[in-house]
């Protein structure tokens, strides 16, 4: 009777799952960097104080994302990684929304 059996960790590649998740965080961070650079470029031509402020905001969003990703990657290094904290998920979502609102404000 194996139908109700809970999967045991020797079934498949237990070691690679955290690794793959860590890599997923890395490439998401990379995508975020590209988007943040585009966001910074958006206002760079204008110059002046508002451009400085906007570039700082984009950099801040990227740093926040980097911090979240780094934090999570440290968690994934442990033997039995815990569930992604919802605060991290919401933080990531907040970064995305911030970038989009920033973009909408500049485009408008």
């Amino acid at each position: 009777m194996t139908a109700g059996r809970r999967p045991v960790e020797t079934d498949r590649d237990p070691g690679l799952q955290p690794e793959r998740t860590r890599l997923a965080w890395r490439r998401t961070t990379l995508s975020c960097a590209v988007t943040a650079v585009l966001a910074g470029r958006q206002v760079l031509n204008g110059g002046g104080a508002s451009a400085t402020l906007a570039v700082s905001l984009a950099a801040l969003v990227f740093l926040a994302f980097l911090w979240l990703a780094h934090h999570r990657m440290l968690q994934l290094g442990r033997p039995r990684p815990a569930l992604l904290p919802a605060s991290s998920a919401l933080g990531v979502a907040a970064c995305m929304v911030a970038l989009a609102v920033f973009g909408a404000a500049v485009v408008w």
Partner: peptide
């Protein structure tokens, strides 16, 4: 199993 949670996270 935590692997399923990690897949969900990915």
């Amino acid at each position: 199993d935590y692997r399923f949670s990690l897949a969900n996270e990915r």
